[in-house]
Amino acid sequence: MSKAKASPPPAAAPNPAPAPGPKPAAAPSPTPAPAPTAPPKPEPVRAKSFASQITSRFPEVKVEWMKERRLKVVTTPTRIREVGLFSRDTLGFDHISTVSGVDWIAKNELEVEYFVGSSTPGLEDFILAVSERVPRDNPVVPTLIDVWRGAEYHERETHEMFGINFQGHPNQSHILLPEDWNDLPPLRKDYVSPGR
């Protein structure tokens, strides 16, 4: 279905020099007509429109980076549920891809990132990253499994790997680690692997 959108990827975004080359070559050759139907706007415009929709609704949300098919927004634990519901119901991001965490030990912060895709035709190539940051000594965030049900095991994994407490999660027991693990959460930067 997104075959028509296949023209942007060869440009491969980073290198500006060859990017204008293939585009004029592709435009006049076979299909000038179907081109306006699927990608009338260049890809970053789509990320920008999602970003402006989110920031106009939630002014405190910060856009961290955007690419042709990616957008990362940073919000707070108090608003992330509303941002999640908005992106699921209004923007159409209904399919959870992964939940990831990052330990920013220099800033004394932990970050939780929800990577969500979409099942809406034409939007399947886009991944929205909804992120929140919490202090390392009191990492409490609300669970989002009522927004994206599939996030349940991902949140459980993030809980045990980073020690983040997802409030409202039905079961935060160990999923990958041994049941009797009583060390620091292993993916925190101050945990050192044995033998290192």
């Binding site: 997104s2 990827p9 399947e124 190539d125």
Partner: peptide, 11 residues
């Protein structure tokens, strides 16, 4: 569901 990353975002 027609999820296929090869089609959705050809790499």
């Amino acid at each position: 569901l027609s999820f296929d990353v090869r089609k959705d975002e050809p790499y």
